[in-house]
Nucleic acid binder design. Structure first.
Lengths: 267, 267
DNA sequence: ACCTGAACACCGTTCAAGT
DNA sequence: ACCTGAACACCGTTCAAGT
């Protein structure tokens, strides 16, 4: 049982790989195979064809090797998925669009991190499912840890008392991951991004279907059918974040006017 | 592409199945095969051996048939998983422990629904992953719809103005699903429930590992290491719900004293 | 140390054939 | 209408053998 494995994301063999790249040789195809290069290629494949089509055979094809070569560097498929997810999340968090002149302070930083993740998922639809998988089968693995740290720091800066840091940050992170999961609206494996027209049509069909549900079983769903057809995922996500932030400041930040939040920058 | 399939969860063949059970015959093993019986057996298998071990071969073994029989009734594996998830969620929502004498009103109802789902996941560890999967690959499928309806009704009763019903309910549902995902702490496939001692040891190891992280990279995680070791998942979940509820009442419910919530029953 | 590639033990799904 | 069971086209992973 590899339950509770915690952070041991490296293959048993293959640790150091600071070896110099075999200098000239041929340019593209004949590079040395490294763990990094495998992860990069995995991300490429995930972006292009989706999670279901990322197979070790597809990898060996693109890298011009055999399965044994992959498994020398990588351990297994789950580890590769985790590494790919962590890599994409890391760059998404690091390269967030600089908030216009520190706007919003700590609350603005939280919004920025959250929207950074949201946008990363829009760009890499497979990411939503992988974030969920990581959260579930490795609840405190590198991916979750990274997100917690990014949200936790501004939570602290917000003035939340230390005793509430963990609960508060958890609530934010859990909301973010839940919301981004539903919003990915891909085919689940995250293959094609899905056009804007597709999405409009989808919402239209869904909304119509909702209005024809049994009024006894689904009165509420029927009542929000129209609202849901018109909603914008990203805007709704922002609202959700602000809702949770309001809860935090109201409940935990003393001296704050309840319900008052630093104005979100209209970026 | 079966994207945006929406609610068409039935196999193309096999609709009616109100046929009388072939009366006497032998008792257990020689029942007629129905979609319902397959779903029931799937839930049994999921509970006993986890999601990874639910295969059509395992099903045919327990049901004493061949794969063709399964596929006559069921369509494909994804559909079976969805049906199993929906069945468990439906009974979890229907059989919630009656809140002690209506305590808490609408807010209490929301807590009750949320905790009902939480407890269902504790009982069926595979459920966490499946809820996530449903949310991602079928964002408005029967499972999500059912949960939305259950949360939306008390949201309405809370006094939230109609224009905010959708956003408010979404925020709650997304938090619930994100939180329950991390809390499942199984092996991901949701096989063994995991003992209390296992869990304590896991938290201990994780907490220690956190304290040895790089102070430059993970200052926040290091700071909450102790707090996380002592936390109780269910209690934390309650706090998260209350945090979101506070945000809702503060922001959307006029006439409510901000930060004041109906006292949660100490059940 | 790093890589090759055949082979193994599995999957989900299909489909002609039976009743 | 419902079921059988062999067969198909895939998986991830292993491992003796090469360099």
């Amino acid at each position: 049982m590899e339950r509770y494995s915690m952070l041991d994301q490296c293959s048993n063999r293959a640790k150091m790989s600071g070896m110099a790249i075999r200098t000239r040789q041929s340019q593209r195809r004949r590079q040395v195979l490294t763990r990094e290069r495998i992860v990069e290629t995995a991300v490429e494949l995930l972006d292009e064809v989706g999670a279901d089509a990322l197979t070790v055979r597809a990898l060996t094809g693109r890298l011009a090797t055999g399965p044994g070569a992959i498994y020398w560097h990588i351990g297994n498929m789950d580890e590769l998925l985790e590494a790919a997810t962590d890599a994409v999340v890391a760059t998404a968090l690091a390269t967030r669009p600089a908030q216009p002149a520190e706007a919003g302070g700590a609350a603005g930083e939280i919004r920025s991190v959250a929207l950074g993740l949201f946008d990363a998922i829009t760009e890499h639809p497979w990411l939503a499912a992988q974030l969920a998988v990581q959260l579930i089968r490795n609840p405190w693995g590198p991916v979750t840890l990274r997100i917690f740290e990014s949200i936790g720091r501004p939570v602290r800066a917000l003035g939340v008392p230390q005793g509430d840091w963990f609960t508060t940050t958890s609530t934010l992170v859990h909301y973010i991951l839940g919301a981004t999961a539903q919003t990915s609206h891909g085919s689940g494996d995250g293959s094609v991004p899905g056009s804007e027209a597709d999405r409009a049509e989808f919402l239209d069909t869904a909304s119509r279907a909702w209005q024809e549900l049994d009024p006894d079983d689904y009165p509420f769903i029927r009542a929000i059918a129209e609202q849901m057809r018109e909603h914008d995922d990203r805007e709704q996500f922002r609202s959700g974040i602000d809702l949770v932030l309001t809860g935090i400041t109201t409940l935990h930040v003393k001296g704050s006017a309840p319900g008052r939040l630093p104005r979100p920058s209209t970026a």
